[in-house]
Design a protein around this nucleic acid. Structure first.
Length: 950
DNA sequence: GAGCACTGC
């Protein structure tokens, strides 16, 4: 069954192309080659359609004109932005083109003006010192900037070797012997040497790097002045030879012996059985795993204890072996299963595949996996790998997990939302099921905490098979971590033996910037260094580009991977030997009071930095360069990341727990209880949605809502769609809203085209929700074509995900007895949406901003909204929004205009017209009591008239 | 007129 579904999905993709092909061939028979299926339909009619076509054409021409105008404006704006960017980043990148124009005189004048004749500076105790004089940070940065100009001039000169008279050069000896440093002279000497090489012919030029290096060696002694105290001289120049003038120094501090679980790499082969000789080989391999010698002890411990905490380091084989040992020891007798949860789908799939190979069975038979959209198990399955969210859903069907004899929660230290809820629930049911064995696997740091949570459960430590990682810290803190990361990467490239580099950055924008700078810098160095392949990786990167990081590095080259947090846990890249860790990541936080989510750059935790460092030691002895000091590490970083339960919206969790019959949420045993306020907020919302009654019990509506694996407001919307007879449309909207990633694709160089393409879905100013529906339907109309997505600047991946979710929602409709019904009435659809999202409404204020109605809070419509994209847009009086996000401002994302009357009609318990109005006015000076209440204002109620009663 | 860390059901 499960495999059939999988096959269906796959074959649908194949069909897609075939049908698109057919369609195109059919269309060729029509007199005019249409460019879209819609036009093809228009052509079939008679003269009436001809008129329509002319009108269409006129519209298109107008649109084209608009596009051209916008295009020109966008180009202007882009060049302005580029200019601004160049200026801002010039202290890192510099700009060779600009430099070309800087003559020596100008340069000296500038320098004179800045009174920076000599450059000899240092940082002591976080203060910038220049010959004992304290500098402000701005002054210090100016100093560095000057030096970088020199460096770039040098590189540029070295690369071009002509017209050098108009450039800066003084072929003089350098450095005063009194200890002062004459930077200017030093640079010029280097320049001169480059030229000499060139002028004296090939033989000398064959070794320009030696000269360069001699100069650099000279630099090293001085470079130590820059960071760190003046008195101390380090011996690092004996260890490395540096190429970069603004070079970073690290202190080797410790060796990491920390790790994570082994993930079997490679594709999952469904149903592939190994030939017997390979099976023997696999069996032999199993015996070489570190965990093998712990087999008997492990089985004894499981026998004696109900809960066992396993601390297993990288490569110990715990994920693949423990369930097999338990199976061999007979825990699967009597039709009982062994379940093993993973935080990620990929892990569940690949581990299951590996284990099925080891056991020599078909995947999906004795060994299977279960993830959303794909249930690869059968009645015969005894070892079941699954995502933790999946086990949570199984609780809904089987609250005591009667069919399981053992549950293993793997990677529990990651503390995902599902893991935390699961741990609470497992602890709860373990009391009633003494025969149920629990195994929790965790990292070293949290083992004690897990043990405490499970009433001092026994801890079993299993050594891993991992390589040591040297950890290097910075001497002094860095002002700009991005700059530091780039310098460090280049430094590693030049000074360290072969091995790929992994740099952790916070987001897409930062990665793109870093990529640009790195390319620029390596170009400046030309052939002096070996090739550096730059590979960006982040979740939103198209899949075909993501594959690039897994390509083996060619001989003589080095790969530098610029990654977000995705490389911390989710994917493993072979060949990484060096990790550069600036110590930051983006983290989501949630403010229960305002219901606002925000994504902010925050320092990582110690556990996280260990995890990052561990990425260097997967294939051999590695090195990790931390761009912060060891003092920072010890005193500034938290031990562990704040678990997700404490920084997220809990509405869904509360609904799940309530439907499991857990009423006393405050006393539910979370390992780290979430803030009370967040729980109350979630309860309040569920009550408002009608999922809970006044005493906090689950209602019939709530039970139906809990069936849908989406946020409660979305599930309410789906349940309500039954009443408005538009469930077909509403599940499409719900699926589109819950894809998580953005639907519209907006590449930097084609923003205008992308915007106009998007605008087409907003025709009629229908609002973002309906626009999403239009996108989905248009895609469906185009036979789910990938080509169509490219043409319309739509993300294929998001759409495919939306289709999967929609299919699942459609199947679930049947379960809660909602008929699939379609309606063309946009108002009905909007009303159904309002039924779920009435707590998310805002009204327009005089200054053009909005104020949310429930807890008054100022917000703005997000510029990506269709409402803002339309020309001469009029701000709607009252809007409904999908979510509130805090970025540069407080924004409402996915906005649709609604009629205020609907609110009273749909949620009379939440908004009502009552006497509070009078009170409101009496306290406000704006409108005197009893006056200004015209009859019209009574006929068309304004939102001011609604008070909230919850 | 702004931005999208990462999972998961």
């Amino acid at each position: 069954m499960a495999k059939q579904f999988r096959k269906k999905v796959l074959s649908r993709e194949d069909d897609e192309d075939e049908t698109a092909q057919n369609r195109r061939e059919k269309e060729r028979g029509v007199k005019r080659q249409p460019t879209s299926p819609r036009e093809a339909n228009d052509d079939d009619d008679g003269s009436e359609s001809e008129q329509e076509r002319l009108r269409d054409q006129r519209e298109r021409e107008q649109l084209d004109r608009n596009i051209r105008e916008r295009d020109a404006a966008a180009t202007r704006k882009l060049s302005e932005q580029k200019q601004a960017f160049t200026t801002r980043r010039s202290n890192i990148v510099g700009d060779v083109e600009t430099l070309r124009k800087v003559s020596r005189q100008e340069y000296l004048k500038k320098r004179e003006a800045n009174k920076l004749k000599e450059l000899g500076e240092s940082i002591e105790d976080g203060e910038y010192l220049y010959k004992g004089v304290k500098l402000t940070e701005a002054e210090y940065n100016q100093l560095s900037y000057e030096k970088k100009i020199y460096e770039l001039a040098r590189n540029h000169e070295a690369a071009t070797h002509h017209d050098h008279d108009q450039y800066y050069r003084i072929p003089e000896p350098y450095d005063d012997h009194e200890g002062g440093v004459n930077q200017e002279k030093r640079f010029s000497v280097a320049l001169q040497r480059c030229w000499d090489d060139d002028l004296n012919g090939r033989d000398k030029k064959s070794n320009p790097f030696a000269e360069q290096k001699a100069w650099e060696d000279q630099q090293i002694g001085k470079a130590t002045l820059k960071f760190g105290s003046k008195n101390k001289r380090r011996k690092c120049d004996e260890e490395y030879d540096f190429v970069f003038e603004d070079q970073i120094e690290f202190v080797k501090a410790s060796v990491l012996l920390e790790g994570d679980q082994m993930i079997a790499n490679g594709n999952v082969d469904v149903g592939k059985v190994q030939p017997s000789h390979q099976l023997d080989k696999l069996r032999e391999e199993r015996k070489t795993l570190p965990i093998y010698s712990f087999r008997e002890r492990l089985l004894q411990d499981v026998e004696k204890n109900q809960v066992l905490i396993i601390v297993g380091e990288t490569g110990s084989g715990k994920t693949t072996q423990i369930p097999q040992y338990l199976h061999e020891a007979g825990y699967t007798k009597g039709g009982k299963k062994i379940g093993c949860t993973q935080p990620r789908r990929i892990a569940a799939m690949s581990v299951a595949a590996r284990v099925s190979q080891e056991m020599g069975v078909k995947l999906g038979h004795a060994v299977g996996y279960s993830i959303r959209f794909e249930d690869c198990t059968s009645e015969k399955t005894v070892l079941k790998y699954m995502t933790d969210g999946m086990l949570l859903r199984e609780f809904l069907v089987e609250p005591d997990l009667a069919s399981y004899s053992v549950v293993m929660v793997d990677e529990a230290h990651e503390r995902t939302l599902s893991t935390d809820v699961l741990l609470g629930l497992l602890k709860d049911i373990a009391r009633y099921r003494p025969d149920l064995k629990l195994i929790i696997s965790s990292a070293t740091l949290d083992a004690e905490k897990f043990s405490d949570f499970f009433d001092s459960a026994k801890i079993l430590r299993i050594p891993g098979r991992r390589y040591p990682v040297d950890i290097h810290y910075m001497e002094a803190p860095q002002a700009d971590y991005l700059d530091a990361a780039i310098v460090a990467a280049l430094q590693v490239h030049v000074t360290q033996p072969p091995g790929d580099i992994l740099v952790f950055l916070t987001g897409q924008e930062e990665i793109e910037t870093a990529e640009e700078i790195l390319k620029h810098r390596t170009r400046g160095l030309g052939t002096k260094i070996s090739e550096l392949i730059i590979c960006p990786i982040y979740a939103n990167l198209p899949t075909e580009l993501q594959a690039k990081i897994f390509e083996p590095t060619p001989e003589g080259a080095r790969k530098v991977v610029l990654a977000t947090n995705i490389a911390e846990t989710s994917l493993t890249i072979d060949g990484i030997k060096y990790v550069i860790d600036p110590g930051f990541s983006k983290m989501k936080s949630y403010n229960p009071r305002s219901g606002m989510e925000s994504l902010q750059v925050t320092p990582i935790s110690k556990a996280s930095s260990m995890q990052r460092a561990g990425r260097a030691g997967r294939t051999g002895h590695g090195k990790c360069f931390r761009l912060y000091t060891s003092y920072n590490y010890d005193s500034d970083l938290d031990d562990t990341t704040v678990p997700e339960v404490q920084r997220t919206n809990l509405a869904n969790v509360v609904l799940t727990l309530k439907s499991l019959g857990i009423h006393d949420l405050v006393n539910f045993e979370f390992m780290d209880p979430p803030p009370c306020e967040a729980l109350l907020k979630a309860l309040e919302l569920l009550f408002a949605l009608g999922a809970l009654n006044k005493v906090g019990e689950l209602t019939k509506v709530g039970r139906r809502m809990a069936e849908f694996p989406v946020d409660p407001m979305l599930s309410k919307m789906i349940v309500a769609s039954d009443k408005y007879k538009c469930s077909d449309e509403v599940i499409s909207i719900a699926a589109m809203l819950s894809t998580g990633s953005s639907i519209f694709y907006r590449p930097k160089d084609k923003q205008v085209h992308a915007d106009t393409a998007r605008l087409r879905f907003h025709s009629g100013n229908v609002g973002d929700h309906i626009a999403l529906l239009k996108v989905y339907n248009a895609w469906k109309e185009a036979n789910y074509s990938t080509q169509w997505c490219y043409e319309n600047y739509i993300q294929v991946r998001s759409m495919k995900r939306a289709r999967d979710i929609r299919d699942q929602l459609e199947r679930l409709l049947e379960r809660v007895e909602i008929k699939l019904s379609s309606s063309n009435d946009l108002e009905a659809i909007k009303k159904a949406v309002t039924s779920g999202f009435f707590p998310h409404c805002a009204r327009l204020q005089k200054n053009g901003s909005y104020r949310t109605i429930k807890h008054p809070h100022t917000a703005h419509i997000h510029p990506s909204s269709g409402i803002m994209a339309l020309e001469h847009h009029v701000l709607p009086r009252c809007v409904l929004y999908h979510e509130l996000v805090l970025t540069t401002k407080e924004y409402m994302r996915q906005v649709t205009e609604i009629k205020p009357e609907w609110l009273v009609e749909i949620a009379p318990h939440y908004y009502q017209l009552n006497g509070v109005v009078e009170e409101d006015y009496s306290t406000s000076k704006k409108m005197p009591r009893g006056k200004g209440r015209t009859s019209t204002s009574k006929q068309i109620p304004s939102l001011v008239d609604y008070s909230i009663c919850v």
